[in-house]
């Protein structure tokens, strides 16, 4: 419960197009990235009437829990009371909401389907993950725009430090749909999810969990430069790479910012990642540590007319 408790990543579960394993987060997805098929990953049981975002979120959650050793093939160890869920997602229920108002306009409320009722709620993904995997800890849905993924990691870490859970499953997810494309003004949306399991370092050590990265600190600022500067105050070393925001207001990133530090953007084939971005950045940094890179990595996400979030990611053995 110490305020200085170190928070580590103890599991990663991708459910992203063209990604077979976490290593693909370094090399990038296969060029002919097939859509994620949740029925293959989860089995068909219990998926009827669940929307695309919930199915994607459930797929990533299962992969993440398995990777963290919190669930084996046969079922879960009895840990649910102390495991929480944080989901980052902006557009999960957009298609349901828009379709329902179209139906009401044409047919009054008598035309609506009871199956849409749960899916109209923005927290459906997080609550369905909790129900399917029996996770009774804190359950939070972050709908905070482009910074949502990094913010979700921050709030998960904060709840772990406050002793509210032993592990927290953080899931970033955005579904692709014509309605969402129109709203966002993008050619496509990632239509995928990724899960990251966080816990206190001593908890991971005590249960012999494999640690993939350590969270070195979080910052919030009005712009990308200020946010990067604040991360620099947390770690004096030049980063080994930085993950750039998806959209930075209407401005390009300043060329001189973190000069010489490799910039990592998400591959074009995925389209917009929106709320999922920060969690994918974290998972990708873990994959780079696994591949032997030393880091540290900066992850930045957000908009300069809103707020920019930054997360410092350290290698598991990094002494800082």
């Amino acid at each position: 419960m110490s305020e200085f408790a170190q928070i580590v990543v103890s599991g990663v579960g991708p459910a992203l197009p063209g990604v077979a394993g976490a290593g693909d987060l370094v090399t990038g997805p296969a060029p002919s990235a097939e859509p994620v098929d949740p029925a293959v990953l989860l089995g068909k049981k219990g998926l009827k009437y669940k929307d695309r975002a919930t199915r994607l979120g459930l797929s990533a959650a299962l992969a993440g829990l398995r990777d963290a050793g919190l669930r084996d093939e046969d079922g879960p160890p009895a840990v649910g009371d102390r495991v929480g869920v944080v989901v980052a997602c902006n557009y999960g229920n957009v298609e349901t909401i828009c379709r329902v108002v179209t139906t009401i306009a044409a047919e009054t409320t008598r035309g609506t389907s009871p199956m849409d009722s749960p899916n109209a709620s923005s927290n459906i993904i997080a609550s369905e993950i909790a129900i399917r995997f029996g996770l009774r800890g804190p359950n939070l849905t972050v709908c905070n725009g482009d910074a949502s993924g990094l913010d979700a990691l921050h709030w998960a870490a904060s709840m772990l430090r406050a002793g509210r859970a032993e592990q927290i499953l953080v899931v970033g997810v955005e579904p692709d749909h014509e309605t969402v494309r129109k709203l966002v003004g993008a050619d496509r949306i990632v239509d995928g999810a990724v899960a990251v399991v966080l816990e206190r370092a001593e908890t991971a050590r005590a249960r012999g969990a494999r640690v993939g990265a350590r969270l070195g600190g979080y910052a919030r600022a009005g712009g990308v430069e200020e946010c990067a500067r604040r991360l620099g105050c947390l770690s004096p070393d030049t980063p080994g790479g930085w993950y750039v925001p998806e959209v930075v207001g209407d401005t390009e990133l300043p060329a001189g910012l973190l000069a010489g530090v490799p910039r990592h953007a998400m591959p074009d084939v995925w389209g917009s990642l929106s709320g999922a971005l920060g969690v994918v950045q974290c998972a990708a940094a873990v994959a780079r540590f696994d591949a032997g890179e030393a880091g540290p990595f900066y992850a930045l996400a957000g908009r300069e007319d809103d707020g920019v979030a930054g997360l410092l990611l350290l290698a598991p053995g990094d002494p800082r």
Binding site: N123, L140, T141, V142, C143, D305, D306, V308
Partner: peptide, 15 residues
């Protein structure tokens, strides 16, 4: 951000 210059804001959709 527009109204108060706030940059550390968090919207939680928790029913």
């Amino acid at each position: 951000r527009e109204r108060f210059g706030a940059v550390n804001t968090h919207t939680f959709s928790n029913a």
